[in-house]
Design a protein around this nucleic acid. Sequence first.
DNA 1: GTGACGATTATCT
DNA 2: GATAATCGTCACC
Length: 201
Amino acid sequence: MKLSPEYYLNDDVVSLAKDLLGKVLYTNINGQISAGIIVETEAYFGIKDKASHAYGGRRTNRTETMYAPGGVAYVYLCYGMHNLFNVVSSVIDDPHAVLIRAIEPLVGKDIMEERRNMPSTKGAITSGPGSAAKALGIDRSFNSKNLNGNEIWIEDHQISYPEEAIAASPRVGIAYAQEHALLPCRFFVKGNKYVSKPNKV
DNA sequence: GTGACGATTATCT
DNA sequence: GATAATCGTCACC
């Protein structure tokens, strides 16, 4: 079953990032359905987050999507070649988002293999935000799409990981964010081979 | 109008 | 481990 629209209105984006682990992200592109279990996320907490595009309340054409009410996709092109997919959360004008960093292939593995040109048994097929998005066929045309539509959505398959199977760690590469750099805003499933970085805490 | 750069990844040594 | 690939955004001329 799909997550309800209210699910995304939670303004505790860190808890939301953790809760999204085990949820299943679907895409339907021209009838080609693929899906993966979310196994790694990262929280970006709005205007107070120095690592966020919306830090300090910055508002541009690109970041406008994050100011929308929760429940839409924020997709943006990084390094000119990678589409990064985020789940926008909280209410309107509160630009929280959760970056989906890795998924575990579940449905349409053959489709993902074709998109990524590698076997789904290889962990790298969906490890890392750029790879996961590409495997699901997500590109910038998905930006600001509603997550309750028929092209992209998230389902709850009642998958839950025990507390000890979930690791929280500081996000990668944001040492400049000072006090925020130490906050455990990155969550992943320990030992899952599709997680992008080494399974260390 | 123009230039510098990024929430990264594949590939090469 | 190092580095190239590659383009939309944003800040400033």
